[in-house]
Amino acid sequence: MAIYKIAIGNPGEASHPEAMRAAAAEFFSMLIFVFAGQGSGMAFGKLTDNGPVTPSGLITASLSHAFALIVAVSVGANVSGGHVNPAVTFGAFLGGNITLLRGLSYWIAQLLGSVAACWLLKFATGGLETSAFSLSSGVSPMNALVFESVMTFGLVYTVYATAMDPRRGNVGIIGPIAIGLIVGANILAGGAFDGASMNPAVSFGPAVVSGSWTNHWVYWLGPLIGAGIAALVYDNVFIGDNSHGPIPTTDL
């Protein structure tokens, strides 16, 4: 089982210059991603007078998040591995690809980056609302929990296959593109039901700025469940003990 690969890390690791640079990279990657993704939703809402979700709005959200994530992962890959998602960091931790202490520094940076992006959006738009994620009519918290778990499973499974597998070869070159595309596809699948977060930090920033925390736990528990299952499945079934080796920080 991959669980024995879990490492806590050195107490001084979080203050190491390399770790601080990695956390800073996660902060800026998250800021870029949330500013573009959340901003596109705010712009569409302004153009449509905050009308109901439409097919064109869903496609807009899918494309903006896919493109922004491709860029955010790419610009952070050489420094932090380009996680841009606490669920991805959690999955990397379970597979032994990042220590607990460094993972916690990533989480803090990712959450702060999301909050900063939402505050900047609110200021830049003259006070427009940064809407928190919410469930659509007829969708229960348990429905949303399943959606978030399954969608995040697909995302983290893709991350493992294209960025964390030591045998990935040339597939690693298209890793950021594949990761962005699966997020865009999942938004088309689940966006009309619960907003398709797949990322606790993406949900956290708008919740902080708007002050709306209804069913917020779904957007943490669902992605963490999906990420954990994906990490354990891929690492145990497809990497295993024979082919698993230490993965450099730049390849996380």
Rank of each mutant, 00 (worst) to 15 (best):
V73I: 15
P11F: 01
E148P: 11
G175M: 05
G126L: 02
L128R: 10
G172T: 14
R167M: 05
M1K: 11
L224I: 09
A36M: 11
T214K: 14
M42E: 00
I174Q: 02
G180W: 06
S62T: 07
I247K: 02
Y219E: 09
F123M: 07
E18Q: 14
E18Y: 08
A23R: 03
S15R: 15
S203K: 05
G240N: 15
P52E: 07
S62A: 13
T54W: 07
V183S: 03
A72I: 01
A68L: 07
A68D: 01
Y234C: 11
A66Y: 02
N215T: 12
L188G: 09
L135T: 13
K5N: 13
G103S: 08
A132F: 04
G191A: 07
T48W: 10
E148M: 08
W220E: 01
K5R: 15
G205V: 07
F44Q: 01
N10G: 03
P223L: 09
A231W: 03
T162C: 12
Y160C: 12
I3V: 12
P11Y: 05
A87C: 06
Y234Q: 14
V208N: 00
G184M: 03
S29L: 08
L69Y: 07
N236S: 14
Y234K: 12
D194V: 09
M20S: 09
M198A: 08
S131K: 11
M198T: 14
T249D: 10
S29H: 00
G95E: 02
A178R: 00
T54Y: 08
I247M: 09
A117W: 08
N78I: 13
K122Q: 14
A2Y: 06
T130L: 01
W119M: 15
I8D: 04
V218S: 04
F33L: 13
P166I: 15
I8G: 03
L121Q: 06
S203R: 04
F238E: 13
V150W: 05
P141R: 10
Y157P: 01
F133A: 03
I98S: 05
N78R: 13
I6L: 13
S80R: 05
A178Q: 02
D194W: 04
R102C: 04
A227C: 06
S243K: 14
E129Y: 05
H216W: 07
A116W: 05
F147S: 13
V156N: 03
A72S: 14
A192H: 05
G191I: 02
Y106T: 03
V208S: 03
G191E: 02
G184I: 09
L104P: 00
A92N: 05
S114C: 10
S149D: 01
F35R: 00
F28S: 11
S149P: 06
T152G: 00
G45Y: 00
G45R: 12
S80N: 10
I70S: 03
I59W: 10
G245P: 00
P246N: 10
A61M: 05
H83E: 04
E148S: 11
V237L: 15
S210H: 05
A178M: 13
F153T: 06
A144Q: 10
E148W: 07
N199H: 07
L188H: 08
F153N: 13
L101M: 12
L120T: 12
Y4I: 11
G39Y: 00
G175Q: 03
T130Q: 03
